[in-house]
Amino acid sequence: MSTEGRGTTTLSRDERFVEAILQRCAENKGLAARLRRADNPATEYQSWDVLGSLGIDLERDYQRLPFVTVAAAIAKSKAEANGKLALGRAIASCYEEGRESSQAKARLRRLLACDELGEVCRVLRPILTLIDSKVGQPLDFVRLLRQLRNFPFHAQSIKAQWAQEFYGQPAEPIAGGET
């Protein structure tokens, strides 16, 4: 978050989006149900009214896909607030052995093998569902959204962040924004 001269707090676009989705899901269960289906390409269009009203460019995949993916994850998680858990750490937390789990490592490797944003979002769908079912705390959706939005421009850096989060090393700031 950044602070302007008069002591007021200004949220980033990512923070405003996450807050708006959290609030709308809490207030409107029908909208939350439509957003839960947003990560399926066949039913994604059901989320476009919400995304469009929040200023998301629906025609450009690199703009739309990060927001669709995070909105669906928020709606599925039924989170009441943005969490603090980073994606890499959340993947490790899904298994008893943590980062030593061969299944956790396989999921991370599959994610790290992605080269395009569309592929990352497709691979993330089942991972986010797994995280929601196995981990008792919400993801840092703002951080994930920022990472996905920056993926087309800084793919290697974003993948390195996910690996660092998974293996427990301190994460570096996200390219183009704060952590």
Rank of each mutant, 00 (worst) to 15 (best):
E119I: 10
L128G: 02
R60V: 14
V123G: 10
A155S: 14
D49W: 08
I127V: 12
V120M: 13
R110N: 08
A175R: 04
Q147K: 10
D57Q: 10
L85N: 00
K159N: 09
K105Y: 06
P173E: 10
P173M: 05
A75P: 02
R16Q: 12
T3R: 10
E80T: 15
G118E: 14
E59N: 15
G52H: 07
L11T: 01
D49L: 10
A42S: 13
R149K: 09
E100F: 07
T179W: 00
K29S: 02
K159D: 09
I21K: 04
R64Q: 01
Q23Y: 03
G118W: 07
G52A: 14
A163I: 00
I74F: 00
A90Y: 07
N82V: 08
A92I: 08
L139R: 04
V70A: 00
Y95E: 15
L51K: 01
Q103M: 06
P126M: 07
D115L: 15
E44I: 11
L87M: 05
A72L: 01
F67W: 13
A90G: 06
P41E: 12
E59Q: 13
G30H: 09
C121K: 06
K76S: 13
R60H: 12
G7V: 03
D39Y: 01
I158E: 08
R89H: 06
L124R: 10
T69V: 07
G176Y: 02
Y45I: 15
G176C: 07
C121Y: 05
F153M: 04
Q161I: 15
E119P: 04
K84G: 08
I21W: 01
D39H: 07
E100S: 04
